[in-house]
């Protein structure tokens, strides 16, 4: 089996879906020269009509992708979390609402691939981890792969899905490498990961740790530290936040009685706080300790290397939270 990086997995998924279906095309900024790493060779392979380098006009081309999708195309749009703000009108007032507003007439099979840079000294304008904002708007599917395998499988599912999908590519995870099976080695000849099915990264009995995107790796690292002390942690990666597989989380909490959520987003109204709220409302009687949410500080991302690392979840913050719930 071949090992691949997250970004290679995304590139493979793009190529496979464009090959499978002529209505799939890609648009975004600087695709030809692959500034964000996942589109090298696409123009040469599929031609300029199917690989559109757009002007710097996010609200315009996000909307154009939506319009094209209403008329039979399946666009893949490449962008960056912080540039979503520029296209917010199209994302919120159109993408999320059209199908419902028009009584189910509108079909919007668009996939937004959204690179999520943070923790690399890029400062407040280029470090947004903004998936919770979009969870708060009904009508958008939110996908947060934490590894290469899921990135490929979820991306392919997103392209085939008939709703607007926002796939957040964690900037910390994108160069991580893992075994991703080649299609020839798969029973169905391809890798598809369904939405709304959490991955139990490792089973355990003392505490449930739910990790989101890059938070999964922190959960794994923290669990290793505590394993040496005899703590058995169950790690769950929801993989998609909308839809969210709450059953798997509730079942795990029923077993462990303790929950820590690790979310790289800002803490207020985060995915972490939503999961904590669900468990508080639906799993209260299973809990043996207050839930802990390890998320980013409620402050803009500072530039200085002396400050930026303080704001994000880290394995040691997760370890401290686990100790807290076990206390």
């Amino acid at each position: 089996m071949a090992t691949k990086t997250y970004i290679q997995a995304i590139a493979e998924a793009t190529i496979e879906e464009m090959e499978r279906d002529k209505s799939v095309f890609t648009m975004g900024e600087d695709l030809r020269h692959s500034v964000y790493g996942a589109t090298a060779g696409l123009v040469e392979r599929f031609g300029e009509d199917r690989v559109l380098d757009t002007p710097l006009s996010e609200n315009g081309f996000f909307g154009a992708a939506l319009g094209a999708s209403l008329c039979g195309m399946r666009p893949i749009v490449e962008t960056v979390t912080s540039f979503l703000w520029v296209g917010m009108d199209q994302l919120i007032s159109q993408a999320a609402k059209m199908r419902y507003m028009f009584g189910g007439q509108a079909e919007l099979p668009v996939t937004f691939r959204v690179r999520m840079f943070y923790a690399r000294g890029a400062s407040a304008h280029h470090s947004d981890r903004n998936y919770p904002v979009f969870m708060n708007t009904p009508g958008l599917k939110i996908i947060c792969p934490s590894n290469a395998y899921d990135a490929k499988g979820l991306m392919k599912t997103a392209v085939r899905d008939n709703d607007v999908c926002l796939l957040f590519e964690d900037g910390i995870a994108i160069s991580s490498r893992m075994e991703v099976p080649d299609n020839a080695d798969l029973p169905n000849g391809e890798l598809l990961v369904p939405f709304g099915v959490a991955n139990i990264v490792q089973p355990g009995s003392d505490v449930t740790i739910v990790g989101i995107a890059g938070g999964v790796q922190h959960a794994i690292d923290a669990a290793k530290v505590l394993e040496a002390e005899g703590v058995s942690a169950e790690i769950i990666d929801p993989r998609t936040l909308v839809p969210l597989d709450k059953e798997t989380i509730l079942k795990s909490v029923a077993k462990t009685g303790r929950l820590v959520v690790v979310d790289p987003a800002h803490k207020m109204c985060s995915a972490g706080s939503e999961i904590a709220s669900i468990v508080a409302q639906e799993g209260f009687w299973d809990l043996q300790a207050p839930i802990q949410v390890v998320a980013s500080e409620q402050v803009n991302v500072p530039y200085s290397p002396a400050l930026e690392p303080l704001i994000y979840p880290t394995p040691s913050k997760v370890v401290a939270a686990i100790r807290e719930v076990l206390d």
């Binding site: 703000w85 304008h125 280029h126």
Partner: peptide, 24 residues
């Protein structure tokens, strides 16, 4: 140290700040 390369500003001499988001 809060802003970095893309966000230099000196309001005292009329520099209202550099922005990382294109055209903002």
């Amino acid at each position: 140290g809060k802003g970095g390369s893309m966000h230099l500003a000196d309001f005292s001499i009329g520099i209202l700040g550099e922005s990382g988001i294109v055209a903002s």
